[in-house]
Design a protein around this nucleic acid. Structure first.
Lengths: 327, 327
DNA sequence: TTGTACGCGTTATCAT
DNA sequence: ATGATAACGCGTACAA
């Protein structure tokens, strides 16, 4: 079904049908005739032919490492909700944790495939920067502060600073930190820095060996806690860079006969589903992921429409959710 | 950058460049000349113009209720991995749990927007069937057995039957079931049926009030367990249709002074992240979601390529993951 | 207000 | 093996 067939059926020219769908410079009678035929046939204009003419795809490329974390899910939901109301669709670039594919997708999305790109990368390198500069469409990065790029990110640094302070106020004296390993994300670094700053400001002991890193694997929270505990049997506070790790840590402490929160207070990060599921319920830090997605989408839309945006780098806040593990 | 500009730069005709990218009927010297120019310019053919000619979009529409469950994530990962290797991309239709949008997306995807559609619907109604029949491209449904449609689904019925038996073999005599509410999914029905059949086959008591349903909300597992316990203070086994509900149920039992698994054995469903995180670790049923995504994608590719497929309806197995909550 | 005619970038047909 | 050219479905400048 093409625009010409519709035109013939409605007894008008193809131009009239085109106008019917776009600017709308059509007399009432013809409009009605067209409407009827369109209704009957279920005709929908070919988006590819439209793109060929207009250079607009109404598509947004979204590059993600993998759909396996609450954070990613929420961000994508936020993006999707915002774009959907504007008639845009998401073209997914799932890299399966393969960083080289992030670059590949940046290239694939180049030549008029999408009107804009949202990148949820774990780590933006110089190669990324280069690929982004080559892009002909606007790009928004979510989750990291990359200088000179449009981005939405979280205040990891301050969040960890505050949550560590939170433990300090509850009279914790020997606090340890379980972060991400170095291969991981810049967020990890910020979180670690926040932890160190909080201890220093409170004049509490802060040795390198109080800080440990983990893979995001299953049992590692348990094992890391074991190692930390052997060094600091007097520890009374644990800050974890993720809820998953916190769960393992708590489990080790409990197996060891320590009571949480009476003997040791524990906080996690990211407000995952476990936080309410485990015993004791886990105090955690909630980032505004869905909002980040929505804000990123809104920023991208403005860039596409060449509407001036108020800020290229937007930092979002966080929220400390207090539960039983610190009471 | 267009194919004509490349042709001019390489000193050949546009047809030669086109052949270079497609069938490849080009002499070695010209091939090399083209390769060089393409390399230098970074030229990529316009997918829209290609589609206009070939009627192939290399896009697969994926309709999902929302990105908020492990199941959905895994299925989409499975789809994405399989399609990516074949040069297809995912066009996401996130309905935000609004069923009417499923129909909308089915229509949006119609007129040559995608080469095929994968539908992860919570419940396929007659309206869905109608919309699917109208589609000009093949459709695969994942997660439900819909007669006459291509689909991949799980053996919920047998899984619950087996896991209930599992409790029976461990000498449970009074087993209750917490399922989904009726508005939800056909899966819910199958799971309930499997439960009833297992009890009947074992000649155990099976009253209607042993079977309860829940929303997928936070605390409801806790509250439903409370209600069931008041009716059956002698209960010694609980089958839950989701891990989330199981967590709430266990919590209630523990608060009530019951020991899990010594006094009451509990099993969940879906092998979510909590299953290993809580105490006791949760025995659960794992469905092969990622495999379902991959198989669905493979089936769709065959349909698109008009390769005969061995079966239109594929049922996948499951796995009982035994943990401490039933030991 | 309406219709004709051209061009968007590509593939495919047809001569050569 | 190669190149000129028509055709895909649409939007729009232009003439009417």
């Amino acid at each position: 079904m093409t625009i010409n067939e519709i035109a013939k059926l409605a007894g008008v020219s193809n131009a009239a049908v085109s106008r019917y769908f776009n600017n709308g410079y059509v007399s009432d009678e013809k409009r009605e005739a067209i409407r009827k035929v369109v209704e009957e046939t279920g005709y929908v204009p070919s988006p590819q032919a439209q793109t060929l003419r207009t250079k607009k795809t109404k598509l947004i490329g979204v590059i993600i490492p993998r759909l396996n974390s609450t954070a990613t899910n929420l961000v994508v939901n936020g993006i999707s909700d915002r774009l959907e109301t504007e008639g845009y669709q998401l073209l997914l670039g799932n890299t399966g944790d393969d960083v080289s594919k992030e670059l590949k997708y940046l290239q694939v999305f180049n030549e008029n495939r999408v009107d804009g790109v949202i990148l949820l990368s774990s780590m933006v390198t110089n190669k990324h920067r280069l690929a982004i500069d080559k892009l002909k469409c606007p790009v928004v990065i979510i989750g990291q502060n990359v200088e000179g790029c449009n981005c939405i990110y979280y205040n990891d640094y301050q969040a960890v600073y505050m949550v560590t302070n939170f433990l300090i106020e509850k009279a914790c004296k020997r606090i340890v930190f379980i972060g991400f390993n170095d291969a991981d994300i810049s967020n990890g670094k910020q979180r670690r820095k926040g932890f160190i700053k909080a201890l220093k400001d409170a004049h509490l002991p802060c040795e390198d060996s109080q800080i440990s890193t983990s893979d995001i694997k299953k049992q590692s929270g348990y094992l890391i806690m074991e190692s930390l505990y052997s060094k600091y049997p007097d520890l009374d506070g644990v800050v974890c860079a993720s809820d998953r790790v916190a769960v393992g840590a708590i489990k080790y402490l409990q197996d060891r006969g320590k009571r949480v929160p009476e003997d040791v207070k524990v906080v996690g990060h990211d407000y995952s589903d476990f936080s309410m599921a485990i015993t004791p319920t886990l105090t955690t830090v909630k980032y505004h992921y869905e909002e980040a997605g929505a804000k990123g989408a809104a920023m991208l839309l403005n860039l596409i429409r060449e509407i001036p945006i108020s800020a290229n780098e937007v930092m979002l806040g966080y929220e400390i959710i207090e539960n039983d593990s610190t009471r």
